[in-house]
Design a protein around this nucleic acid. Structure first.
Length: 266
DNA sequence: AATGGGACCTGCGCGC
DNA sequence: TGCGCGCAGGTCCCAT
């Protein structure tokens, strides 16, 4: 959290709100989220620049500026972008020429804000695999086939497929009826096909809902993402499975809390 | 090489 | 009541 659907939601809202706006000031309230450059240098590097384009790469955002540079934003777990903001309780805020403000909040200081000369050559971007909507079924099959890894950590491996995190991996595997600890190589062609389809269905629906507001995620406007009403397993430990009424299990898989139905998912 | 675990952080909720 | 602990998870880094 936030994963591909949440970041895509914010990306679309940022486009509407910020394209063509000029940054006139940067408020460095708690600039520990600024990485790879001093906060002061970041401020000087963006002042006077106009936002030209907003790009999403997996769970990260890139704001292309008129001066040829780009702001790189990764919200990690608790990062929020809020517009219009107040500049008051943020880590960093951007002030635009109409005096409107974009707040970058982050409770846990895991989030990242960078100023890049060439975002395409940034190491994090380069290591990302293709996104779910960019992979044809034949390509997806190659990513899964023969891998010794458990299927859930593989779905969350950003170098394999970029954009799926802990929450959507759980929801996708429930709908595909696949146990999260199945070895990738053990999946049948039929299961891979169902998995591929469910990735598309779940992510498309989640984007249409504006993401899932669990923990601190909110949309740019501060509104909640409503996909949470479609969650079948995530955060539902002990509650009855919506299909078979077996209590939902929570195990640690690949170091992460993992929700599934031990009867429906095999 | 692949995999697992800890670190990074903070706030919240739970149990004693 | 209040304190301390566990937990949340995206990514990096190190050890095996």
């Amino acid at each position: 959290m936030p994963e591909l659907p949440e970041v895509e939601t914010i990306k679309r809202e940022l486009e509407t709100a910020l394209i063509g706006k000029k940054i006139v000031d940067v408020l460095l309230n708690n600039p520990r989220i600024v990485r790879g450059i001093s906060p002061g240098a970041l401020k000087q590097g963006v002042k006077g620049a106009v936002i030209r384009a907003i790009i999403r790469k997996a769970k990260s955002l890139i704001l292309e500026l008129s001066n040829g540079r780009a702001l790189f934003i990764h919200l990690k777990m608790t990062g929020q972008l809020v517009y219009p903001g107040t500049g008051q309780n943020s880590r960093v805020s951007f002030v635009f020429s109409g005096d409107d403000i974009l707040d970058f909040n982050d409770q846990r200081l895991f989030a990242e804000l960078r100023l890049l000369k060439d975002w395409r050559s940034f190491k994090f971007i380069q290591k990302l695999g293709l996104e779910p909507f960019e992979v044809p079924f034949t390509g997806f099959k190659k990513l899964i086939a023969g891998k010794k890894t458990k299927i859930k950590p593989l779905l969350m491996d950003q170098a394999c497929i970029a954009g799926i995190g802990n929450l959507y991996a759980a929801e996708i595997l429930f709908r595909a009826k696949i146990h999260p600890e199945r070895k990738a190589y053990s999946l049948t062609d039929g299961e891979i096909k169902v998995l591929f389809n469910e990735i598309g269905c779940v992510l498309r629906k989640a984007i249409a809902c504006g993401g899932s507001s669990v923990d601190t995620y909110v949309r740019l406007s501060g509104k909640r993402g409503e996909y949470i009403r479609y969650h079948k397993v995530y955060g539902r430990e002990g509650l009855p499975c919506c299909v078979c009424k077996t209590p939902i299990t929570r195990n640690i898989v690949g170091g992460r809390g993992t929700y599934f139905c031990r009867k429906c998912q095999t």
